[in-house]
Design a protein around this nucleic acid. Structure first.
Length: 674
DNA sequence: AATTGCTAAGTTTTT
DNA sequence: CTTAGCAATT
């Protein structure tokens, strides 16, 4: 029996209510993950088969954390012969759940079960191609904006307000073409994963029934982040048995711009009138002062489920609010404070975090940190997987899995240059449209009317032959070492050489080659006896669905630099929030889009990351587009009760320089005493 | 085919 | 001040 005595009464109630719909309103730092894991343990104690339990999270990180904690709490059931699938509860993200379902039923939806998943860059490239096809190459269209609009349209959100009208018009117009383009490549994007499961449930009642029978107890974490389609999925699964437990906090809904429907949480009673609502309000993270400030701020939001976080950690210190002349001075002062805390109070770097609204703001901080030699760790930024050589490599892999994936094929067809010029590719593409076939199919049997030069034909023949050979070696040997295979094709096609040649700085070139070989080496991480083609599919799937997999544990003792968005779910003893100015927070764009509430929630999330101390700062001027522009303090600062804030120079951070000289003096006088 | 130079624009981001 | 995308040039 799992131990319930360590839980507070509300937590215990949440854990013990295992049947019927439950909404757990879990404020920041109220032990949400613990409740979910205990609840799973409780279900198992009650004799529910693990296979009947499903807990859906929003991120892979959360899923992994929960898996680890469930493993800790729940001792593995005694090994039963051939228990197979049913040994552990399903703890995963929405998208990986859908992939699991879709791999099984893909044929019923007209896909092959080895479908690939397109990430954002690939979606953008599909859109660019469609747009340039229908409105000529001279049309200047923001493909990223169109993609955002398209995603909103397809997910059926209610957030039609704001955004670019032309993007929506274009998105509506190209939607059918976009969908058939992906389908023709046996590819799905992230939205498709959810939408296709919904279609499956709609068209194939037996599949829906099988899933319902399998997942009899469903939990959803970070429920305020679900979009309309995700809600429909959850509803479809639980409509009949009604064992749905959602955990979330409307005050921490900060992804509305990405289609999250806070209404899913606020209006849950519409679909589950009998829902039991449990509020978790005891915070185990922050001081009372920090919580009081957060509560006062968020009270200014109109539509929310009221709650009052409290803590018995004591008042702690007041928030400190500082004003600086510009961002460089602000960064300098923050770094001084970090150094001061470390040298005087022995605060390790890893207990400190600096939070900001936009990624661009990290620059000034990084400069100051480097000048002082402070170790730091920048979360987010552009990803490893956005680098060109990595994208090319993945396109190669996808192309080998499925050469009829036009997007991947087109990306690498002439990279490195192998005589398939733009005009040649244009002709092949045109022919593929005429024939209603893939580009690769045309490549294999180019008719005379495609109109290729003899030279192009020869290059093409060689390329097709090389692809066929490489694919054959992928299927021939069931025990194939994928790493060796990948290294071989990278060398054979001259890609590595091309990277070395195209980079001026030889060190940078070696770095990129290293990236490639590292990624190739991680092909071996797929531990499975499955045939190599299947192992490769799994590898690609994991990489697309979970881009942070590798770079997770590079911590060490370092200060964390992070955006307010990506800090959700984290906590730090000491938090510094910089750039609290009108135009940044709330962001200037939130005014026109009418999302001031969400900006306030963002600030709320940032504040509630702090365990012991919280430092806020703003500048009188900030460089924007190179030019210094005057700035005004954020309106949200006025919403913090004055008696909780210590403003100005009263607790002026002593510069490290200063501190060192003070201590040098101290030691000198001590020496003198001896 | 590749390199250079110009223009334009510049939240948040996971899956 | 950057960076990305595109055009023009060699």
């Amino acid at each position: 029996m799992s131990d319930l005595t360590k839980l507070n009464p509300q937590q215990r109630d949440a854990v013990e209510t295992v049947r019927g719909p439950v909404l757990i309103l879990a404020g920041a730092g109220t032990g949400k993950t613990r409740v979910i894991t205990c609840r799973i343990a409780r279900l198992l104690d009650r004799g529910v088969a693990p296979s009947h339990i499903l807990a859906v999270t929003f991120t892979n990180k959360a899923a992994r954390e929960m898996q680890a904690r469930v493993r800790q709490i729940v001792r593995r059931p005694p090994a039963t012969d051939g228990a197979g699938d049913g040994e552990r509860p399903t703890l995963c993200t929405f998208h990986s759940l859908c992939v699991r379902i879709l791999r099984r039923y893909a044929d019923r939806l007209g896909y092959k079960s080895n479908f690939v998943i397109y990430d954002e860059a690939e979606q953008v490239s599909v859109i660019k191609r469609i747009v340039s096809r229908i409105s000529g190459p001279e049309a200047k269209v923001d493909a990223v904006a169109v993609l955002a609009a398209l995603s909103k349209l397809r997910n059926g959100g209610t957030t039609l307000a704001g955004g670019d009208d032309t993007a929506f018009v274009i998105a509506e117009h190209i939607r059918p073409r976009y969908e058939s383009a992906l389908h023709a490549c046996n590819a799905m994007d992230f939205d498709d994963l959810i939408l296709n499961v919904l279609r499956l449930f709609d068209e194939q009642p037996d599949a829906l029934e099988a899933c319902r029978r399998r997942y009899q107890y469903v939990m959803v974490d970070e429920y305020q982040d679900t979009n309309a389609a995700q809600f429909r999925l959850v509803h479809a699964l639980t409509r009949t048995h009604r064992n749905l437990c959602v955990v979330g906090d409307d005050d921490q809904s900060i992804y509305g711009w990405r289609g999250a429907e806070i209404a899913n949480l606020l209006d849950l009673e519409q679909h589950y009138p009998e829902v039991k609502v449990i509020k978790l309000e005891q915070n185990y993270r922050s001081t009372a002062t920090i919580l009081e400030a957060a509560n006062a701020l968020i009270r200014n939001n109109a539509r929310r489920r009221p709650k009052q976080l409290w803590s018995n950690h004591g008042a702690g210190t007041l928030l400190s609010l500082e004003a600086y002349a510009n961002e460089d001075e602000e960064a300098r002062a923050v770094v001084d404070a970090l150094e001061f805390d470390r040298s005087i109070r022995s605060v390790p770097w890893s207990d400190q975090a600096v939070l900001f609204r936009t990624n661009a703001q990290s620059r000034a901080l990084e400069t100051a940190l480097r000048q002082s030699g402070v170790r730091y760790h920048l979360v987010g930024g552009q990803s490893f997987f956005d680098r060109r050589e990595i994208r090319d490599f993945l396109a190669y892999l996808k192309m080998f899995v499925n050469p009829h994936d036009d997007i991947s094929l087109l990306r690498i067809a002439n990279v490195p240059a192998r005589g398939l010029s733009d005009t040649t590719m244009e002709r092949l593409l045109a022919a593929s449209h005429e024939r209603h076939s893939s580009v690769y199919a045309v490549m294999r049997s180019p008719d005379a009317e495609v109109g290729l030069t003899t030279r192009a034909q020869a290059s093409l023949k060689e390329f097709v032959h090389w692809v066929e050979t490489t694919r054959t070696s992928l299927t021939a040997d069931p025990g194939l070492n994928l790493r060796a295979w990948a290294e071989q094709f990278l060398r054979e096609c001259g890609y590595l050489e091309d990277v070395r040649r195209s980079e001026k700085d030889p060190e940078a070139a070696e770095g990129r080659v290293r990236n490639l070989l590292d990624l190739a080496a991680s092909l071996e991480d797929i531990k499975s006896a499955a045939p190599p083609a299947e192992r490769l599919e799994r590898f690609l799937e994991e990489l697309t669905l979970d881009r942070e997999r590798e770079q997770e544990e590079q911590a060490g003792d370092a200060v964390t630099l992070i955006t307010m968005h990506s800090c959700k779910g984290l906590e730090f003893p000491h938090v510094h929030i910089v750039g609290l100015e009108e135009g940044l927070l709330p962001h200037s764009r939130s005014q026109v889009e009418g999302t001031l509430d969400e900006e306030r929630r963002l600030f709320y999330v940032a504040i509630t990351r702090a365990m012991r101390t919280l430092t806020l700062s703003h500048c009188g001027a900030r460089r924007r587009h190179g030019q210094p522009m005057p700035c005004h303090p954020s309106r949200f600062l006025k919403e913090l009760p004055a008696h909780l804030v210590e403003a100005g120079s009263s607790r002026k951070p002593v510069s490290a320089e200063n501190a060192r000289s003070i201590f040098a003096g101290l030691y000198a006088s001590l020496d003198a005493l001896e």
